[in-house]
Design a protein around this nucleic acid. Structure first.
Length: 206
DNA sequence: ACATTAAGTGATT
DNA sequence: AATCACTTAATGT
């Protein structure tokens, strides 16, 4: 994973530690609900944060994951004035977060070159990921999206075994269960994985 | 053994 | 690719 490594200068580190909150969220808990006011910018210390877009009908579309050492790009972009979130951030695993009050953002960008670089790097990284996601959706490459999804789950779980139902996968990808079942079946026939109930085993041929 | 839930499949739009 | 209707298989009580 490409990580915007926060190698901040000493003064920034001390200010950062002074003003930010260190909070823990259990797996599955909602860190930022849609419509919530953004008061802090999260930086992931450990674990993974899942950021997705939700539809009124209850469907969702996964946008990107935030790994340790990364900040949430979406919150950086709307930190100059206090705004409401268009997206949902959930704890994919148990996560340790550093919450920085949004008020410091513009000041730090001018004051600390390393902070500016960090913010730019994470925005750039996410922008590229979103372009890729947009491309796959626009050209209806659901099969590729599914493979991306599975590979990510593999790296998060650091295991080739994924414990999810087809229904759960379909929901996260904003599609229907039957479509996922069929795609998975085809991947199984291609010898890329093995299917079990509530469990998928990825093979090295992925 | 029975009920419930996950997964597989064909037909239709 | 989505939805529906239906079947089959696995799992819980």
């Amino acid at each position: 994973m490409t990580t915007a490594s926060p190698s901040f200068e000493a003064p920034l580190v001390s200010v950062l530690e002074a003003v930010s909150l260190r909070r823990h969220f259990a797996e599955g808990s909602v860190v930022l609900a849609q419509g919530a006011e953004i008061t802090h910018v999260p930086i992931v210390v450990s674990g993974t944060l899942k950021v997705s877009l939700t539809e009124v009908g209850g469907r969702e579309l996964l946008l990107y994951y935030v790994q340790p050492g990364e900040g949430c790009a979406m919150t950086f972009t709307c930190c100059l004035k206090t705004q409401h979130s268009d997206i949902v951030a959930e704890a994919e695993t148990d996560v340790e977060l550093l919450l920085v009050p949004v008020g410091y953002m513009s000041e730090w960008i001018q004051q600390f070159p390393s902070w500016k670089a960090f913010v730019m790097d994470t925005i750039h990284l996410r922008f590229k990921e979103l372009l890729k996601a947009l491309e796959l959706i626009a050209f209806q490459r659901l099969d590729e999206r599914l493979i991306h999804f599975l590979k990510h789950k593999q790296s998060v779980a650091s295991s080739t075994v994924i414990n999810l139902s087809h229904e759960q996968i379909a929901h996260e990808m904003g599609t229907s269960r039957e479509v996922i079942s069929r795609l998975l079946k085809r991947l199984e026939h291609d010898g890329k994985l093995l299917l079990y109930r509530h469990q998928i085993k990825l093979l090295s041929t992925m």
